[in-house]
Design a protein around this nucleic acid. Sequence first.
DNA 1: AATATAAATGAATGTTCGTTCATTTATTAT
DNA 2: ATAATAAATGAACGAACATTCATTTATATT
Lengths: 196, 196
Amino acid sequence: MRYRDEHKELLVKERAIEMIVREGLDGFSMQKLAKEAGVSPATLYIYYKDKEDLLIQLGYEEATRLTTTILKNFDPNMKFEEGMRVQWRNRADYWLENPVRASFLEQLRHSPLRTRVFEALDTEFVASMGRFLHNAIDNKEIKPLTKEAFWSVAYAPLYNLIRFHTEGISLAGEPFQFSEEIMWQTFALVMKALKA
Amino acid sequence: MRYRDEHKELLVKERAIEMIVREGLDGFSMQKLAKEAGVSPATLYIYYKDKEDLLIQLGYEEATRLTTTILKNFDPNMKFEEGMRVQWRNRADYWLENPVRASFLEQLRHSPLRTRVFEALDTEFVASMGRFLHNAIDNKEIKPLTKEAFWSVAYAPLYNLIRFHTEGISLAGEPFQFSEEIMWQTFALVMKALKA
DNA sequence: AATATAAATGAATGTTCGTTCATTTATTAT
DNA sequence: ATAATAAATGAACGAACATTCATTTATATT
């Protein structure tokens, strides 16, 4: 029998993500994707059941990569400051090294497919971080906080910083340049807010 | 001559926002909108040049409402803590009272139309907040910060908190219930991070 | 009552959409 | 070589798409 051309399969994925980032979820179509990937439309239906299936599979795959990256070198039993530092490092790495993929995920996050793509992964992920938070409070490394307050203060500032960089937003004259320095300065502010 | 039916015009806007929030930007179409608003498709083209024009006009209008709400009772010359408190109050009010409209704006923010909808408003808005920050640093109410670090620490946590509430995200057993209490607790954390 | 005018319409345009299918192609196992 | 099999295809389907247009409707002015 004939084997599936993996190069072709990868190309389809790559072009799909590109197109969605470039033209939005509404600018994305199966026929355009087929043309851009140099493939027959029918081929897409060998790889995927339908358009929605394609989006969900692509989203799930990329969300998994994100989760894996963020948890690298991280252990919920780490000391609080060290764990936080690893998390900031990992999250920054993912966003800075995969801006297109990150933007694709962001579009899915704000679309009605959100639940089906992220729910399972998020749940598992949040459980791990929950233990991390619980330990830190028990050891009196940080003041008692609800999970929601912790998550909101702990990472949202970093994401915002990265967004300024990635979207080329300019608050002063020239577009903001992300740097290790400003990242760790902001990290210090966040640690100050959280510490017991 | 015949006058434009303003009730009809408003209904079109409302249904458009509803549909985009419900089905995403890719689930939105002019023909469906016409049907849901009880209007001929041709009527939409009296109100708007084309589909893109509709989205941009709707987005701009809603972004203006957001900006206006956020700046209510705010003055860049306020004392830092008071100004921050007003900003948190206003931002929370907008998101909690207009969840559907806010979600509509969020979809546009993460779409390729972003620049055309928000750029002008954002620029003006950021200028006002820039003065506020500048004053606070001059008066030594907060430590010296870049604009990007300030924005990232000052409001991102609030938005995150509201997102948990609006999207019904559950970190513990039951879905998170936003409350004044947790809002001001989080506010206190942020103020602690920023204060000189 | 008649006229002028812009709003509003339903039907139609050509285009693009998601998806299917009969057929061909490439590869493994015989 | 041949048979078997899944990959891959191009052409085609009806449905839904954005948009247009000739016509009708409602209202303000004469």
